[in-house]
């Protein structure tokens, strides 16, 4: 029950209260670049959610077993090479950024090959954006959050995956809302110098303002679950 409450809080936090795009500003490139039409925006959201989950699973595994201070794998290798070493002395966390980037790049490649093979129409519709996901900060951001909590030893696999999936859902919500607004915006008369990126930014600001209202939900759910 306690785990469920934790997971619910993490889910609400990641999807609504601390929305990846509107509070942490990660994943802005696709948020601005692919939000012209509703269907491509939704496709991009789904692709990001999928990649973020795969990458989170892989990076949790790497952090837990290899990268965190005192992780089992490198310590086992080191102590079998050097029996005199003290237990848990190896700390590979300096390598974590490089490993995460590698993990993200390979999972994007994997998703791209899978989609191309089994869903050709879908591949055609967002094939161009898939490689771009590699440099999508939202995914690295999720990996970093997971690393922070795994190193502090307060998150397991369930919490990490919840953060990743609902972070992706939050990204999808934000980009679909944005695409809906921008489709309407095409019909409006925007001052000439604000056209393009500037008005999109201002709309995103108003959207972020609206999302700040969700912080009340987060606080209330927390009160409800831990009276």
């Amino acid at each position: 029950m306690e785990l469920f409450a934790d997971l619910l809080l993490i889910a609400i936090g990641a999807a609504l209260v601390n929305n990846f795009v509107l509070t942490y500003f990660v994943g802005l490139c696709p948020f601005l670049g692919v939000s012209r039409r509703l269907d491509t925006a939704f496709g991009m959201g789904c692709a990001v959610t999928f990649v973020i989950s795969v990458a989170a699973l892989l990076s949790w595994t790497m952090t837990e077993f290899v990268l965190r201070p005192g992780a089992p794998l490198p310590n086992w290798v080191w102590s079998s090479l050097n029996p005199a070493a003290e237990a848990g002395a190896v700390d590979l966390s300096v390598l974590s950024y490089i490993v995460y980037i590698f993990v993200i790049a390979s999972s994007v490649q994997l998703v791209e090959m899978y989609v191309r093979k089994f869903f050709p129409p879908l591949y055609k519709s967002f094939g161009v954006f898939l490689p771009l996901i590699t440099t999508n900060c939202a995914i690295l951001f999720a990996c970093l959050e997971i690393m922070k909590h795994v190193v502090a030893r307060d998150w397991g696999l369930a919490e990490s995956l919840t953060l990743a999936i609902f972070g992706g859902v939050g990204f999808t919500i934000a980009i679909v809302l944005m695409a809906g607004i921008r489709e309407e915006l095409e019909l409006c008369e925007v001052p000439e110098s604000l056209r393009g990126a500037a008005i999109t930014m201002i709309v995103a600001g108003i959207l972020a303002l609206a999302f700040m209202g969700f912080s009340g939900i987060g606080a209330n759910v927390e009160k409800l679950l831990n009276p």
């Binding site: 110098s193 604000l194 500037a198 930014m201 995103a204 600001g205």
Partner: peptide, 25 residues
């Protein structure tokens, strides 16, 4: 206070982008 919160970042950059375009034009 709004300006140091996340929405303020979007609003500030949006207005500055508009200003930059206007100056360019």
């Amino acid at each position: 206070i709004l300006m140091i919160l996340p929405p303020g970042a979007f609003l500030a950059l949006g207005s500055l982008l508009g200003l930059a375009t206007w100056l360019g034009h």
